[in-house]
């Protein structure tokens, strides 16, 4: 057999590619359910940590059932619309005009009082950042927050995932004099007029600004919904 002939080369390449494709397709199909579970559990754990409930990969599902008592979807007028809140892709919603956006709301019951958990999605320095913010039953005071990122610089922008940063949001107000104002992330020591603020990460300026913008962009459409809770 002439190993350098064109026919041999082409047949060899074709057979190899088909074989490899079959192996990869099999692996992907076989592992997909486990991978999807992981992604779902990851999301449940993040939602739980916005109400300061620590979970592990094992107990997340049970804790989620215990704490998250309801979830629904609203539009920017604050009216309930059809849809499954858990499976709404926030990334796609953020890209739409405000009037067309559908907004997931997760309702948690912590020690008998209701908390409303709202998802966030925005851009940091190197890639997307996201998170969840839990708001008290008055629709104004923040109960807790959690942030995550894809590829922010370790030790700098990536610090937004640390409790030290996220815990600052506890007790801040989203409304100022009855108007939606969001929460600003500002350089340490700076104070904003007409809105609450938290300290930025030193050395993570762009990521911090990203968090600030994400909070405004993602929470602004909820303004009517949050006002209706008062």
């Amino acid at each position: 057999m002439n190993r350098n002939s064109n026919v041999y080369t082409i047949v060899y390449a074709a057979v190899m590619v088909v074989l490899v494709a079959a192996v990869l397709a099999f692996t992907a199909l076989w592992l997909r359910p486990t991978q999807e579970d992981n992604i779902r559990i990851e999301k449940q754990r993040q939602i739980l940590s916005s109400i300061n409930v620590a979970s592990t990969a094992k107990d997340a599902e049970q804790l989620y059932k215990d704490y998250i008592t309801d979830s629904y979807v609203v539009n920017s007028k604050g009216e309930k619309v059809a849809g499954d809140a858990f499976y709404i892709v926030v990334k796609e919603e953020v890209a739409k005009p405000e009037a067309e956006r559908i907004l997931p709301v997760f309702v948690a019951t912590v020690n008998g009082s209701k908390k409303y958990i709202l998802p966030l999605y925005g851009m940091g320095l190197w890639g997307p950042i996201w998170g969840y913010i839990a708001v008290d039953a008055n629709g104004d005071t923040v109960y807790g927050a959690v942030f995550a990122h894809q590829g922010e610089t370790a030790g700098l922008g990536a610090e937004i995932t640390k409790a030290k940063f996220a815990d600052q949001f506890h007790g801040k107000n989203l409304f100022y004099n009855g108007k939606f104002a969001s929460i600003a992330v500002l350089k340490v020591g700076a104070k904003a007029d007409h809105q609450d603020s938290v300290d930025a990460i030193s050395g993570g300026t762009i990521t911090s600004q990203g968090v600030s913008k994400m909070l405004f962009d993602c929470l602004q459409p909820y303004a009517n919904f949050l006002s209706s809770l008062k």
Partner: peptide, 27 residues
């Protein structure tokens, strides 16, 4: 392995193995 496409064959083998490892880690 045909000599003229040996680099490509190597890459296909490596790429397939890496994807399998990646999928296993994700699961």
């Amino acid at each position: 392995i045909p000599n003229r496409i040996r680099i490509i064959v190597q890459l296909v083998v490596i790429a397939a193995l890496v994807i399998i490892v990646d999928q296993i880690l994700k699961a």
